[in-house]
């Protein structure tokens, strides 16, 4: 076969392959939303993080503003220490709430930041003091049953 025709075919083949890979990265995967640009790190302590995982999103008003970098266990306080990476473009006040929520009934868990009214902003390495643990379904159900039972006994 002619050398140039062969070269064209192979070039086309490689180009299609790269295009497919780009498609997978951009359209299918979250490479675009994943690249956070410059970030700053803050930590938050929780009694119970439920099923929170590293790389889970950090959202504010539903917008992804960062990602969970790592989750450690503090043996002094017996608490989970979650490290968050937040995009530099989104500064949050010092008294921001960091709550663990679940998307949908059985969906993945994420941290939601709810801004407070402080004039000072969180800086690199700061700790968010106002946190709310993950809701554990079993706890919720048992609470509900207890309250039902106490209502019954009151009657």
């Amino acid at each position: 076969m002619d050398k140039t025709i062969l070269d064209i075919w192979v070039g086309l083949f490689v180009a299609i392959g790269i295009a497919a890979l780009m498609g997978l990265a951009m359209r299918v995967g979250n490479l675009t939303s994943n690249t956070l640009g410059e970030t700053y790190t803050i930590t938050a302590n929780y009694e119970n993080i439920g099923g929170l995982k590293p790389r889970a999103p950090v959202k504010s008003s539903g917008v992804v503003v960062g990602r969970i970098d790592k989750i450690q266990f503090d043996t002094q306080a017996y608490q989970a220490v979650v490290t968050l990476k937040i995009d530099k473009r989104y500064p949050f006040p010092k008294d921001t709430f960091a709550n663990i929520y679940t998307s949908g009934l059985l969906g993945e868990q994420y941290i939601s930041l709810e801004a407070g009214g402080d004039d000072h902003f969180l800086k690199e390495g700061d700790r968010v003091s106002k946190t709310q643990d993950a809701v554990v379904l079993e706890k919720l159900i048992s609470q509900f049953l207890y309250s039902k039972a106490s209502e019954e006994s009151k009657k």
């Binding site: 990265a25 359209r27 299918v28 995967g29 979250n30 490479l31 939303s33 994943n34 999103p57």
Partner: peptide, 19 residues
Amino acid sequence: FWSQMNVNVDFRIDVINGL
């Protein structure tokens, strides 16, 4: 269809590991 896919497919974990 696309947004769910976009949120749940991770480039590093899924695409690169597949490669």
